[in-house]
């Protein structure tokens, strides 16, 4: 299970979000993307997850160009990717439990199996007691945990975390960092943040800037 980009370019209209990015992630690797907003961190995460299409270049999932995959293959591949979104992206109309169960909806599992998987995921992030609450009644840290549980429920091999510590107090941020490091064991972890955070030391870092991109670490990446 590996992930790579090759000369990836992403444009939004006249604005170039990513310019010629080539990266390679074998299973279990870690990368921290950092830099000011507008640098393309979120775009890179979403391109890797197949949510944003490349303008030029390639996103490779297990060596295969994402654009050449059929819709079914794309969906199968995406089913084993988890993302913790910047905005949490939880549905306020659903309980935490139903939010976490969302990725299992189309799997044809029995209700008992779904319940078990959801309970496991919630237990791992320490949210078992809040299963029946709605996300709007949760604190920022708990919402993040619910988002992590949803990302984990499909047992993904890669975990994307888009600015997971934004808006959290230092103590909560440290807790979320520890949780991310713990649950990403044996998985690829790619995180994006404005600045490196001492509580989330990842093996490699890459700085993305809006105008010209620095090349530090790119050769090793």
């Amino acid at each position: 299970m590996e992930l790579a980009t090759s000369h990836l370019v992403v444009d939004f209209g006249p604005h170039r979000a990513l310019d010629d990015v080539s990266l390679h992630f074998p299973l279990g690797s870690q990368l921290l993307l950092y830099g000011p907003s507008g640098g393309g961190k979120t775009t890179l995460l979403k391109a890797l997850a197949g949510l944003v299409l490349p303008t030029r270049g390639q996103v490779l999932w297990n060596g295969r160009d994402r654009l050449t995959l059929s819709r079914g293959e794309t969906r199968d591949a995406q089913a084993h990717m988890g993302m913790v979104f910047q905005t949490d992206a939880l549905f306020d109309t659903l309980t935490v439990e139903r939010n976490v169960a969302l990725p299992l909806e189309r799997k044809g599992l029995s209700a008992a199996a779904v319940e078990e998987k959801v309970a496991n995921a919630l237990a791992r992030v320490g949210l078992k007691a809040a299963a029946q609450k709605r996300p709007e009644h949760l604190s920022g840290g708990m919402r993040k945990r619910a988002g992590i549980a949803r990302a984990l429920v499909m047992e993904p091999w890669v975990l994307f975390a888009d600015d997971p510590l934004a808006g959290l107090d230092p103590e909560t941020a440290a807790g979320i960092s520890a949780l991310l490091l713990e649950v990403s064991h044996g998985r690829t972890l790619i995180a994006a943040m404005p600045d490196p955070h001492p509580s989330l030391p990842l093996a490699r870092t890459l700085r993305l800037t809006p105008m010209a991109r620095d090349v530090d670490n790119r050769s090793t990446a």
């Binding site: 997850a49 995406q78 905005t87």
Partner: peptide, 14 residues
């Protein structure tokens, strides 16, 4: 879409 819920659906296979 702005709150990334549509992305979350896509990654959930929906």
């Amino acid at each position: 879409s702005v709150n990334e819920q549509i992305d979350a659906l896509t990654l959930s296979g929906i």
